[in-house]
Amino acid sequence: MNGVHDMGGMDGFGKVAPDLHEVPFHADWQARSFALNRVMGSAGEWNIDVGRYWIETLPPAVYLSSSYYRKWFLRLERLCLDRGLVSEAELASGHSNEPGRPLKRMPLSGPQAGVAVSRPNHDQPPPAPALFEVGQKVRARNIHPRSHTRLPRFARGRLGTIERIQGCHTFPDAVVESGVVRGEWLYTVVFDSRELWGPDAEDGATVSIEAFEPYLEPAR
């Protein structure tokens, strides 16, 4: 979806302000919200792509004015409601009215859960041989899916070069749109900054994205 989350190249947000007071969490609720997301995310009820989509679909003004962990919390609350894990009445009262239903997977539990947290592997069997090879010119497709995609707007329609083939990974668009977990070839595609930004580009810069094969077409 063409949402405010897809902000690469936007102007007007000011300077980057390095943090003067760095701590992992700036409030206790941020830490609890983070950990709640990790535990519920391990229950198999949604995957990382679906989780991202439910942040992207926050109202734009809420997205832009909320901190990272507030967005995480709002996502979790909405997903729990959508999946029937909690009810509006329960959220209003702050207590459960009925026992939970079985979850798809046993979520992380116990005092060693932190050690068990790890990034899952995203490899999938290839559906077909890779269409593109390293060094080949490709164009990012001019597509604007209403649902989730990981092709940023700034790259669409632009001419780039395949630099690496990263293997065959779970295709986020299909997971979110139809719940299908399947693989697509993933490439690192590098663009000259001038191709992306025209005469306003900085000199001598290149930008790469990680692009799934359906995002790309051979350059003509």
Partner: peptide, 16 residues
Amino acid sequence: ILTEKGYVDPAALDSI
């Protein structure tokens, strides 16, 4: 709520 329903173990949250 999530703890009362048995989905979440607070010890896991602390550990994470």
